[in-house]
Design a protein around this nucleic acid. Structure first.
Lengths: 136, 136
DNA sequence: TACAATTTTGTAATCATTACATAATTGAAT
DNA sequence: ATTCAATTATGTAATGATTACAAAATTGTA
């Protein structure tokens, strides 16, 4: 995983510093759409000097270089993920879990709609997830 | 417009207080997806005692009663609108304007996808708008 | 008019994110 | 290996949207 993270960074032209490797490894291993704070709280366990600003700087670098995607399905915090395949997000309003829905992305990227040039798009769904429905 | 706002409130079961009428009238007249602060800054001109908490309370009431929709196309603030027809949002990253795209909503509401029950959905697009493209 | 319920106000708190100056680390050249 | 400049990380303070909450005002109704 460590080598994979390094290769990914180098390929995207991001120099692979220690902290960047750690953040990317976290994102590769945790596909649960973490917040900046989630990542910080986990990594500070093994990097006691870690600063939260470093997490924000790193995530900003990753998003700008197209390595990681951020999305605003919650109104109070940004979530991040390593998943470059097109997909929609589903938020369960009961348990708070976020799911990827690979088949529900209309791929409008790079299209022109009503004269507007689409660069990015997010599809955010919400409701009650399968798990929570089965519990009822 | 004043009577229309009152009728809308009553129909949705929201008692039509003075401030609620003013906020809804603003939303009916301003279809530019304002923030809570946009609404506050405009209304305080004619209601000098207006509190920002009132704006937040009112918007919360409106969203909960299905009268107004909120969406998170920006990562730092919530935007609001009165537009009950299905539509997507497009944010121009150059001029910051938000457009409605009536034909780009896949209407997943009330469907079940991968076992999850969809209650709400938002489609957020971004890029360069028609206006900004023509200026270049 | 009285009174209870609802709505509004104002202040303070919360919390994610950013600004910025300083310190540490890195990588290349000698 | 050493030096040095450039990049990256740190830590504190600031920002800004939103919420909590208690007191004051308003409303609708009897």
């Amino acid at each position: 995983m460590k080598e994979l993270a390094k290769d990914i960074l180098i390929e995207k032209g991001v120099s692979p510093s220690y902290h960047r490797l750690k953040v990317l490894e976290y994102l590769l291993e945790n596909r649960n759409h973490p917040s900046a704070d989630d990542i910080y709280r986990k990594l500070i366990e093994e990097i006691p000097t870690l600063s939260k600003t470093t997490i924000y700087n790193t995530l900003k670098t990753f998003v700008e270089s197209g390595l990681v995607e951020s999305f605003n399905i919650l109104q109070n915090e940004v979530r991040y993920e390593y998943n470059l395949n097109p997909h929609a997000h589903f938020l369960c309003k009961k348990c708070g879990k976020i799911y990827d829905l690979p088949d529900y992305d209309n791929c409008l990227k790079n299209q022109i709609i009503a004269g507007h040039e689409i660069h990015d798009h997010q599809i955010n769904l919400s409701g009650i997830c399968k798990n929570c429905r089965e519990k009822e």
